[in-house]
Structures are given as C-alpha cells and as structure tokens.
Nucleic acid binder design. Structure first.
Lengths: 155, 155
DNA sequence: TAATTACCTAGTGATTTGGTTGGAAATAGA
DNA sequence: TCTATTTCCAACCAAATCACTAGGTAATTA
C-alpha cells in the first residue's frame, strides 16, 4: 500500500467534490482555489480518477466534474489506489528462491498487515466522512467508521 | 501520514528482528540476506530506528541489533514514523487565510481520517504480528488485532 | 463565433528512494 | 596486542516521484 501526499491531494479534492457537488458540476478551477492545489496537477489526478470511474467530467461552459457514483460507493482506498498505482507487494513471486524461510515469513506478515490496512481504508467511504462532519458541527468525537477500538498506544 | 516502501522495509526488518532475535543479537548482514535489502540502506533505516529507541545496537564480533523494547511495546505506527518523518498535516496553520471555509472543512476531514489511520496502526504491535503467525501455522484467517470489522466494500 | 471547460502531452526543478563507497569506533577472540 | 567483525557515520549518486508549468486540442454553451 502507499499513502503519500499525492493520495492526500486526491482524497481532499474528492471530499471537496462531495461537499460542493450537490447542486451541479464543480470545476477544477474551484477545487484548485479552495484546496490550494495547482490546476494542472488536479487535471492529472482527475485523469486517473476518471479512468477508474470515480468522477465524471462535463465539458464546455457550466461544465465541471461530478462524482462518478454515490459518495457511499467510493471508498478512501478506491481513491488512493486510483492515483497511487497500488504497489504490488513483493511476496517472493509465489515461493521461489525465498532463502531460509525467514524471508517468506516476514513477507507473509507484511502482506497480511497490508491487507488489513487496505480493508480499513476500503471500509471508509466519502459519504462516511461527509456525514461525520455534518453530525459533528458542534458536537465532538463522532466515530468515523464502524472501526474504532483505539486506545493503549500513542505517538 | 505516509506509508511508502521505505516504511515497508523498516517494518519488514523489524519483523525479522522480532522473529530471529530471541536467542541473541541479529546482524544487519543477516537481515540484508533474509529480506533482500541492501546493507547500507538498512544501516540508514536502523540509524533512524535507533534514535527512537526502537532498536539497540551492539558493536563488535557477535554483535548486532536487539529490539529496543518488548515487541508488544512497539507499534507499526512507531516504526513507520521513525523512518518516514511523520509528515505534519497542513491544517491551514490554525485558522488563517483559509479561503471560504471549504478548504478548512476538507482539511479537518482529512486530519480526522489521518488520525484514524494512525490509531489503527498504533494498535497493532510487532508482538501481535508474531503471535498471529505462530497461531496461524496451519490454521487460517486469525484476526490480526482487536480491530476487524471489515465487510461491504472490496477493491 | 467566442468563451468556457475538460482533456491531453511534454517538460522541469526539487525531493525522495534505494544504493554505493569509504571510512571510523568499538569489541571479541587469537 | 593484533585482527576480524560489527555498528556507526558521512558523502555521494542514479533513478524515480512530486508538484507544477506550458501549450495545446476537443467539446459544449450562449
């Protein structure tokens, strides 16, 4: 898995779209202005998002972008994978030349952990984030998703 | 947050250390051999891990690295933060010049999500991963941590 | 026709990645 | 004490990635 600033930009832009796209299409110029991301960089990100059907573009005056599907059907994992080229994990290409077994062992552990992280992000949708915010206008600490058993360790 | 191949290398190396360090110190040469990571790159990673007291080095023949504390006291988030320089999230530096409010809104949403991801990774320890593997020798699908409510969405 | 917008391609400086080289300091064993 | 081993440390490097700029073309509206 890969979670970089590029993915953050994409998620941020999609959030902007989910929040402001209720009435009509949102232009990249608006998102650029709102989020402080350069227009051309947004174009590149949205090319990737469009290829995965996460957004739908409308050309011409009055055009812009819509979400490609309902905000509940778009997970954070979907967005990050679209722009960050889901890096395939080196799992020794099956079982070949995995010297000693110690290598395969840690690879397996890492793969399991990666899958867990992916599932975590796949379970949070754009809709979840938006609703959480609306519900949290003056309240506090609304749980983001079904998953929320944090405690024990801090930074 | 930031989850790159660099962090993956660090987690993988720490897993190797947790698995093989029961009897004595583990040399970087062994980890390099086991995991296919260059020795010098490991040195750089372990310099960062050492500065955060996640590992303890012993010089000289028969030397190597120990875990700096119990594997239960080392979270995945600890490891990734040590090598990846925990990127501070642009939250508009407080509340200044955040045009329109739409920007602050998505920033807040992103910050909340980031915190959630961090908590998720902070709740998984090296010890969890090791125990999961031992428990899963011939069994299947042992839950990794307390957190495991996945369903609904897939890739 | 003109303005607006998505869409496309190429390039660019800065940073990060993952690695190499060449050591120095500490320690165990001969 | 000498030597081998190992961590430690600094500088440097090619390749990739990041975030952006520049300069268009295609579709659509008024």
């Amino acid at each position: 898995m890969r979670l970089s600033t590029k993915g953050r930009y994409a998620v941020t832009a999609m959030l902007d779209l989910a929040l402001n796209g209720k009435t009509g299409p949102v232009t990249l110029a608006e998102i650029s202005e709102n989020q402080g991301i350069s227009l051309s960089y947004l174009e590149q990100l949205f090319a990737a998002l469009r290829s995965k059907d996460l957004v739908r573009g409308v050309r011409g005056p009055g055009g812009g972008y819509y979400l490609g599907k309902s905000s509940d059907e778009i997970s954070i994992a979907n967005i990050i994978c679209a722009v960050d080229e889901w890096v395939e994990f080196t799992r020794c290409g099956g079982r070949q030349n995995c010297s000693g077994g110690a290598r395969c062992l840690t690879h397996t552990l890492w793969d399991d952990l990666s899958a867990e992280i992916f599932n975590f992000l796949a379970d949070i949708s754009l809709g979840d984030l938006v609703r959480r915010n609306l519900a949290n206008r003056n309240g506090r600490d609304t749980s983001l998703s079904a998953v929320s058993t944090s405690s024990s360790q801090a930074a």
